[in-house]
């Protein structure tokens, strides 16, 4: 049986597409582009199967290969992401030339071997497909190849279990509830109340500024652990301590200035000293203290 001209035209057109797709799979820099090129090659191969009388395989090729396997590839590409490994730079010296040499030699061997074969015409599947392609395949699968077919079932189950074992991570213990977490905190004597907020008693309210303790030192707990490990904490406690010192100095000056005048200085002094520990609240007394100071002078 000879092939028709239509089939020849179809072959030369689609074979070009298939080879381009295969080259694209190898040469494309990004894995997604490689996967799409491969999907194109597989669709072309499905058309060739149909043209060769393998109607069942042609449909299975599209459903299983381009539908399932290539989608699986794309999912994994999305999970794994585009890494630096995509670069085409060679890491082993001379590997590219050797690979090209081996590939070329292998191809020449294969094609030379095929060139020696004397193939002139197809026998054709007209007789084999006379009862329908699927029926013919089914007859063979369930008679001659029934043992291989059953082994295939075992193989598929093994593959499914293997994939689950490889990718699934079992949570071996129950996640602790909020109550259990709270009880554990109390038992261990760790930080029982909520962590202090950042910026409290400081000059600013930003999350990267530690809250100040009443004595003016920064509270480590009040800043996010991530910011602390990154070293992105702005420590303004020095400023605050200086402000506090200056305020106390002024308060003392004020008290000394008043000390010559009357006994009311002790009340003013304690008032001036109590205000700075209020942090942000220290500003108004500070401002009001300055004119008082000036007035005293």
């Amino acid at each position: 049986m000879t092939t028709s001209t239509g089939e020849a035209v179809e072959f030369w057109l689609l074979a070009t597409v298939a080879v381009l797709g295969a080259l694209g799979t190898v040469a494309m820099r990004k894995a997604v582009h490689s996967a799409l090129s491969l999907a194109g090659t597989m669709i072309v191969l499905a058309v060739f199967y149909l043209a060769n009388g393998a109607y069942f395989l042609g449909v299975v090729q599209i459903v299983v290969y381009t539908g399932a396997i290539m989608m699986l590839f794309l999912f994994v590409v999305m999970v794994v992401g585009i890494t630096a490994a995509d670069s085409l730079r060679e890491t082993i010296r001379g590997q590219r030339w050797l690979a090209a040499l081996v590939g070329l030699g292998f191809g020449v061997l294969l094609i030379a071997g095929l060139g020696n074969a004397s193939v002139h015409a197809f026998t054709g599947l007209g007789q084999a497909n006379s009862g329908g392609n699927v029926e013919g395949l089914a007859k063979l699968i369930f008679t001659t190849y029934v043992w291989a077919f059953e082994i295939t079932g075992a193989l598929l189950i093994t593959a499914a279990v293997g994939a689950m074992v490889l990718t699934h991570r079992e949570r071996t213990e129950r996640a602790a509830t909020q109550r259990e977490l709270a009880e554990r905190r109390v038992r261990e004597g760790a930080q029982v109340p909520p962590l202090p907020a950042p910026g409290v008693y400081a000059r600013h309210n930003a999350v990267d500024i530690p809250g100040l303790l009443p004595d003016g030192t920064p509270a480590e707990l009040s800043v996010n652990k991530t910011l602390r490990s990154r070293g992105q904490i702005r420590d303004v406690s020095g400023e605050a301590l200086e402000d506090l010192k200056a305020l106390e100095q002024r308060a003392e000056d004020h008290a000394e200035g008043k000390g010559t005048e009357g006994a009311a200085n002790s009340g003013a002094g304690s008032g001036g000293r109590g205000a700075p520990s209020g942090g942000t609240g220290a500003e108004p007394p500070n401002n009001s203290a300055t004119p008082a100071n000036g007035a005293a002078r």
Partner: peptide, 13 residues
């Protein structure tokens, strides 16, 4: 044969 060779070269490349 050509597609097989391209695939094999790709595995090496």
């Amino acid at each position: 044969a050509l597609l097989f060779t391209i695939g094999g070269a790709g595995v090496l490349f």
